[in-house]
Simulated assay, not measured.
Amino acid sequence: MRIVIIAAAILFNIAAANSQTKEFENYSVTPNLVKIEIQEIQGESALKVVKNSNVKKVDEPTFAKVSDLNFKNGTIEVKVLSRLLPSAPEFARGFIGLAYRINEDNTKYESIYIRPTNGRANDQIRRNHSIQYYAYPGYKFDKLRETAPEKYESYADMELDKWITLKVVLQNNIQKLFIDGAEQPSIYIDSPEGIEPISGSIGLWVEVGTEGFFKDLKVTINN
């Protein structure tokens, strides 16, 4: 009897997880520590992603994960728009971006994200922190800022509540982010020592205080 109950519970959990999967453009996406829904914004359909309020740590796997991808090298392009939630803490910056090379159980990946409120801040230090790279789990923003200041952050002009095109180009340890069709990257990353690129999925990532929207996702694999 107990085995039957456990089996039923497992099947129920699988069904519940699958029921959360959304069809987004040409992809299927599943929430991980976030809530997702398809919503119209500025007259167009987009994927809305909001971090779960019970996730207190930052730079965590808070993303909508794309199903059935084996991505290591190539290009990810997407348009993002972020707003601050009414409940956003003072330190919220509209964090939004991409996670990539996500392993099966979401315990390892890399990420580049932006902080739109910093793009036009009246503080040069904040402006210099408009773009952030990190590698999960051992190289979050605070560790990188302490051990290699300025190396994994950069500036670019950006604002809240406006569509921003992010294009991440990956070739093994070299990662470049191009914003709004610029010819030159806004940040050029050589992964920290010890980070080996792996094949995995990609995620549409947000952080605390962000109401994030994604559209026009394009993935080109060049493994």
Rank of each mutant, 00 (worst) to 15 (best):
11 L>I: 07
116 P>N: 06
183 E>P: 02
20 Q>W: 04
81 L>D: 13
143 K>W: 13
164 I>Y: 04
167 K>D: 09
211 E>P: 07
67 S>T: 09
203 G>C: 06
67 S>I: 10
53 S>D: 13
163 W>R: 10
220 T>R: 11
156 A>Q: 09
11 L>D: 01
209 G>L: 01
213 F>D: 01
205 W>N: 10
97 G>Q: 01
107 T>D: 02
158 M>N: 06
218 K>E: 15
52 N>P: 03
42 Q>D: 12
38 I>R: 00
51 K>T: 09
181 G>T: 13
17 A>V: 11
161 D>P: 05
130 S>N: 01
179 I>G: 07
209 G>Y: 01
43 G>W: 13
91 F>W: 15
89 P>T: 02
182 A>I: 08
37 E>A: 15
184 Q>T: 14
137 P>T: 07
220 T>H: 05
46 A>V: 05
171 Q>D: 15
121 A>G: 01
35 K>M: 06
115 R>G: 04
141 F>W: 11
143 K>C: 07
57 K>R: 12
150 E>V: 13
98 L>N: 08
222 N>E: 15
179 I>L: 13
73 N>M: 05
124 Q>V: 10
205 W>Y: 14
85 L>D: 06
204 L>C: 01
216 D>A: 10
126 R>D: 08
14 I>V: 11
170 L>W: 02
217 L>G: 06
155 Y>K: 08
84 L>H: 06
202 I>H: 03
171 Q>I: 11
180 D>I: 07
115 R>A: 05
199 S>F: 00
144 L>V: 10
3 I>C: 08
208 V>A: 03
220 T>S: 13
220 T>F: 08
37 E>K: 14
73 N>L: 09
109 Y>E: 00
53 S>N: 13
16 A>G: 00
74 G>I: 12
71 F>L: 12
212 G>Q: 03
60 E>L: 10
138 G>M: 09
208 V>Y: 02
208 V>D: 06
135 A>M: 00
191 S>K: 10
183 E>M: 05
118 N>V: 14
139 Y>G: 06
128 N>I: 04
104 E>G: 01
133 Y>Q: 09
69 L>Y: 05
8 A>G: 00
140 K>I: 15
22 K>M: 07
126 R>A: 09
16 A>N: 10
110 E>L: 00
